Simulated assay, not measured.
Amino acid sequence: MAEEHKRIDFLLEELKNEDWKVREDAAELLAEVGEPDAIEPLIEALDDEDWHVREAVALALGVFEDEQTVEPLIKSMSDEKANVRYGAALSLSIVGDQRAVDVLQRATEDENPVVRKVAKVALKEIEIRQ
């Protein structure tokens, strides 16, 4: 168990690495591990300077299906990069929280067709869960 925590601590540190690819990989690996202690650091990483990292983090947060990720993911729905908006919409569909409905409805008119499609799917997922 201590070994597992060492790995998680290492990945959490890697979220702050100067290399964006290392940060991106750390976010993906934290999602695979699914350790709830990673939620807060991942939420902080949604503000990363690199969109690849923001996308990986947005996707990673959906794995946790945790309501504390909803508001940060909603904020990510206004990211300048469509990849990040896609990741946030996909994660919001997994979390299935009613608070995301307004932003997802707006995203059905996003400039990017993939974001529009995922937003529509996310709205259906949320509707099913109600």
Rank of each mutant, 00 (worst) to 15 (best):
A2E: 15
A2T: 07
E3G: 09
H5E: 14
K6F: 10
D9H: 09
D9R: 12
L11T: 04
L11W: 08
L15N: 01
K16N: 09
N17P: 02
N17I: 06
E18T: 04
E18R: 12
D19H: 11
V22T: 15
E24M: 08
E24Y: 01
A26G: 02
A27L: 07
A31W: 01
E32G: 07
E32I: 09
E32K: 10
G34C: 08
G34N: 03
E35H: 11
I39N: 04
E40F: 08
L42K: 00
I43V: 15
I43A: 06
E44K: 14
A45L: 06
A45F: 04
D48S: 04
W51L: 02
H52W: 13
V53C: 15
V53W: 10
R54C: 14
R54M: 06
E55D: 11
L59D: 13
A60P: 00
L61S: 01
G62A: 06
G62S: 05
F64W: 08
E65H: 05
E67W: 04
V70D: 09
E71V: 12
P72S: 10
I74R: 01
I74G: 01
D79E: 01
K81G: 09
N83K: 06
N83L: 10
V84M: 08
R85L: 05
R85F: 11
R85S: 06
Y86W: 14
A88Q: 11
A89M: 07
L90V: 08
L92S: 01
S93R: 06
S93I: 01
S93P: 02
V95G: 00
D97H: 04
D97Q: 03
Q98N: 11
R99W: 04
A100P: 07
V101C: 07
V101D: 03
V103E: 06
V103I: 10
Q105L: 15
Q105G: 05
R106A: 15
T108R: 14
E109L: 15
E109R: 15
E109K: 15
D110L: 13
D110M: 07
D110K: 13
P113A: 12
P113W: 14
V114T: 14
K117C: 10
K117D: 15
V118E: 02
V118S: 02
V121Q: 13
V121F: 09
A122N: 12
L123T: 14
L123W: 08
I126E: 13
E127L: 04
E127Q: 13
I128W: 02
I128N: 13
R129H: 08
